[in-house]
Design a protein around this nucleic acid. Structure first.
Length: 877
RNA sequence: GGAGACAUAGCUCAGCUGGUUAGAGCGCUCGCCUCACACGCGAGAGGUCAUGGGUUCGAGUCCCUUUGUCUCUACCA
């Protein structure tokens, strides 16, 4: 026990965190097995990109999940936090390709198979990094169940889902306009397109009407696509142009006649009311082309360059072509005017290249039938969002959802389980690779070249990780999961898709609650991003301040679902909090002789006060966590530990601990200290797992770890409202004395006698001790009578007592009077306010009784205080 | 074009289902190396809770108006 005295003065998280984590992991505390005698509580992790690095967004996410899972585990649930990583199709492929580019190579130098092998190598090399970073944070995930979206099981689930949906007609191959990223060279889903407002132009171009002197003017933002124009649309009711419908206009530069037709899609007010129609490079034009049977001419290729169809512009990039086309139009007199125009340009959310709408064959998920149950399950409250407002975002999207383009022209990912017979062209969709054509028997089969959208596999995460499509006992027991924690930025990418997938394939919702959080921004409120270089690396923060400080920072001072700015000062403040806990514990340990924290029979006033406050804390924190008010719970723990426990209770306990004559009292104090500190460490453990474990272990304890200890329960038999109230009264007096002395610049070294006059002397039984310790008293006299020479003393008045300090050299009667009068006015004002309230019949009859009674009590206290103030004033005069 | 959020102390933000003399951290002022902690202790200053109205016995908290900031979403060339 002697080494306890040698604990360092400053808490060093670095020295302990890794070892503690290792201890937890090796002890199997993170692992959950099916156990039907216990209620499960399950969270699946939003799988981070396998080759990614931990950023603040992850830290936010994981901290919230860890708080929930650790709390539930301690509350006796069979808590499973399912970990895993995502193969992150585009992101990973881009990284591997970049590494090749450094060597002057491309994926085509390797071919598909070898390139995919390189991706796996990459995954092996970097896949462990983020997992170890999760450990640094303290995440209590069940490592024995670690999954990967491309592991055998998840891949099987993907094929199963694809084939099932195909057989139901919910997956189809379609010839459509899709979002195409010329840089990533693949199709994207709508969700993967980000819109940026850009400054552009609206070019007005004159088209000659065929066999006529008349002309028509169209307005466009994209002149470089005009070589692919195959029509001009006007509104059917637009009288300006009715006479032209059916005629043809000559497409400038190409000298090709194209038809003028009428279509409802056109807005008469916009531009000139005439729209150039480019079926291959605009989704609306594509649809108009279908309605009016227009020709399709593709003028932009997969790399974003102009095709042969683009005449003299062939081979140029889109940007070059735009300049050249505009220059030619101007030179040849077709350009009527140019307006500045702000418009939204779709960009690839991975590389921010402008997305090109392209006509192509892609695989789609038919969303309407799947959306229906996914809408219902949120509307009827089976799944609820926290905060509630996000359900509106979700519903709005789901109610207007488009079919989901799921094929990607990449190599890294789940290859689409569709096979084509090279001989007869027959298409087979099957879970396992077929060996011969089911139609002609040919063995010459070729699998579809495309892979699936990364989110296709993450959509299955809540059940694929539990063994689906097999009917495992894990699936039976842990599904549906309880809470999903994630940022609002991936509601569409992920949350929505998990919900409809769960409903479709499991027939059950994937989770009951979606707990949303915001984004962590930099200190100026900007998004953290690589390109800005303003990202804060959580691992660096952990190395410097400890994981506990980071976690506490993340969870406090943040409004539900709101974004938050990251300030290092807040981490420092929470590091200081950890240090405070450390030193409070060091103090308790230094004084410790008892072997356990059983509460003594005899409790002092201060014991009863702290136990009351502690039990209130247990109740509040438990309820707050239940309601996902984690920040509020954390705030309460902070102020209980710092203000109540350290600043008051420890100081009060020093009285007994320093009394070597009364060992009984000394030990009693120790027991209460240990009881409260130990319980507080349990309550704080989900938030600050490391330091709480260190402290809990050092104190007398049962069981191997605080993380598997039983969550504290509210104990009504240890709540003493009367005594707690009395203690608060005494604290009020102590504060008043300190305040007085401070105002008068009395140095702490100068002790003074205190004469307390009160009608409630029982309140101040232990006061001599308290005041000596906390109010610089040299001695304390409790009296009923006002001392004779009161006028020459410094006085302090509260509702329960008047305190006199014989410091005649410091007394300035004028000032004293002024101060007392000011205080009296203040108290009188409060009395008037409450009396006004209480004389309001509406208040007395309609407000709850407890509220009215509280006001009455306050009034009584103020009145007592006023009486005492007036006596004092009279005494001075 | 739709939808939502935010506007509270110098700064960054809490404030749950309406009821305390409106809170925290940092910063600031004054005094302290008090035998756990200067990453500390004690005492302070600082807010007409953006605006105007309404509901209510009672509103920072609910409803509407205005102003300002931000975000998401949408096929307006």
């Amino acid at each position: 026990m002697s080494e306890r005295h040698e604990l360092p003065k400053t808490y060093d998280p670095h020295a302990t965190e890794d070892a503690l984590y290792k201890f937890w992991e090796e002890s199997g505390f993170f692992h959950a097995e099916v156990d039907k005698s216990k209620e499960p509580f399950t969270i699946v992790i939003p799988p981070p990109n396998v080759t990614g690095q931990l950023h603040m967004g992850h830290a936010f996410d994981e901290t919230l999940q860890d708080i929930l899972i650790r709390t539930k585990r301690m509350q006796g649930y069979n808590a499973l936090w399912m970990p895993g990583t995502d193969h992150a199709g585009i992101a990973t492929q881009i990284k591997v390709e970049e590494s090749l580019r450094e060597k002057g190579e491309t994926r085509f130098d390797y071919g598909r198979e070898k390139f995919v092998d390189l991706c796996w190598d990459w995954k092996e090399k970097y896949g462990g990094r983020i997992l170890n970073q999760l450990r640094k944070l303290g995440s209590s995930v069940d490592w024995e169940r670690l999954r990967f979206t491309m592991d055998e099981g998840c891949s099987r689930a993907v094929r199963e889902v694809f084939v099932n949906l195909y057989n139901k007609g919910l997956i189809y191959k379609g010839h459509r306009i899709v979002n195409w990223c010329p840089h990533c060279n693949t199709a994207l889903s709508d969700a993967e397109v980000e819109y940026e407002e850009q400054d552009g132009h609206l070019w007005h171009i004159r088209y000659q009407i065929e066999d006529s002197d008349e002309y028509i003017i169209i307005a466009t933002t994209r002149p470089e696509t005009m070589m692919g124009d195959t029509g001009i649309a006007v509104h059917p009711d637009d009288e300006r142009y009715t006479h032209l419908v059916g005629k043809k206009a000559i497409l400038p530069l190409m000298n090709r006649p194209i038809p003028i037709f009428a279509d409802d899609y056109v807005e008469r007010e916009f531009g000139t009311g005439c729209v150039k129609v480019t079926p291959c490079h605009d989704p609306n034009d594509f649809e108009m082309a279908a309605r009016h049977d227009l020709e399709h001419i593709a003028v932009i290729d997969n790399e974003g360059n102009i095709t042969k169809e683009g005449g003299k512009y062939a081979g140029m990039t889109r940007e070059e072509a735009r300049k050249a086309v505009v220059a030619d139009l101007e030179e040849q007199g077709y350009l009527v005017k140019v307006e500045d125009y702000k418009h939204n340009v779709g960009t690839c959310h991975r590389c921010h290249t402008s997305v090109e709408p392209m006509e192509s064959d892609q695989w789609f998920v038919k969303m309407a039938p799947l959306a229906e149950p996914a809408i219902e399950v949120v509307k009827n409250g089976e799944i609820n969002f926290v905060p509630e407002r996000f359900s509106k975002t979700y519903l709005n999207w789901m109610e207007n959802v488009h079919d989901w383009c799921i094929s990607r022209q990449l190599w890294w990912g789940h290859r689409i389980p569709v096979y084509y017979c090279q001989d007869c062209g027959h298409m087979m969709v099957c879970k396992d690779e077929p060996h011969k054509c089911e139609k002609c028997g040919s063995a010459k089969l070729k699998q579809d070249e495309d892979v699936l959208d990364t989110w296709f596999s993450s959509a299955l995460w809540p059940f694929s990780t539990l063994g689906w499509p097999d009917k495992t006992e894990e699936l039976e027991y842990f599904y549906p999961t309880n809470v999903l924690v994630t940022g609002y930025d991936i509601i569409f990418f992920w949350v929505a898709r998990m919900i409809f997938s769960g409903m479709e394939h499991m027939g059950k919702k994937p989770f009951s609650t979606v707990f949303m959080h915001g984004l962590i921004r930099d200190s100026q409120g900007r998004k953290m991003s690589k390109s800005l270089g303003n990202g804060v690396d959580p691992i660096e923060i952990i190395d410097k301040y400890g994981a506990d400080a980071l976690r506490f920072t993340i969870v406090t001072g943040i409004g539900p679902g709101n974004d938050a700015r990251f300030y290092i000062e807040r981490v420092e403040a929470n590091r200081n909090f950890a240090n405070k806990i450390w030193n409070a514990s060091r103090f308790v340990l230094m004084n410790l002789t008892v072997e356990d924290g059983r509460l003594p029979e005899e409790l002092t006033l201060e014991d009863k006060w702290i136990l009351t406050r502690y039990n209130e804390l247990v109740k509040a924190v438990t309820e707050n966590i239940d309601k996902y008010e984690l920040g509020i719970a954390a705030d309460k723990l902070y102020s209980f530990i710092w203000d109540d426990f350290c600043d008051w209770f420890i100081e009060l306990c020093k009285i007994r601990l320093n009394d070597k004559d009364d060992m009984k009292a000394n030990e009693n104090a120790q027991r209460v200290l240990v009881h409260v500190l130990s319980g507080t460490m349990q309550l704080l453990h989900p938030f600050m797992p490391f330091i709480t474990e260190s402290v809990w272990q050092a104190l007398p304890h049962d069981g191997p770890s605080v993380m598997v200890s039983k969550w504290p329960e509210y104990d009504g038999s240890k709540v003493f409202e009367t005594e707690a109230n009395q203690m608060e009264q005494i604290m009020e007096v102590i504060r008043a004395v300190r305040n007085r002395r401070s105002e008068m610049n009395v140095p702490p070294s100068k002790k003074a006698e205190l004469i307390i006059t009160t009608d409630r002397p029982e309140l101040f039984e232990r006061a001599g001790l308290f005041f000596a310790k906390l109010a610089y008293a040299s001695s304390v006299n409790v009296a009923v009578q006002t001392p004779k020479d009161a006028a020459s003393m410094v006085s302090v008045v509260t509702s329960s007592a008047k305190v006199y300090m014989p410091m005649s050299d410091l007394v300035d009667i004028e000032k004293e009077l002024e101060r007392l009068n000011k205080e009296r006015d203040n108290v009188a004002q409060q009395i008037a306010r409450i009396e006004g309230k209480l004389s309001n019949e509406g208040f007395v009859s309609k407000a709850p009784e407890a509220v009215v009674n509280a006001e009455r009590q306050k009034l009584a206290d103020y009145k007592e205080h006023l009486v005492k103030l007036e006596e004092s004033i009279k005494g001075l005069k």
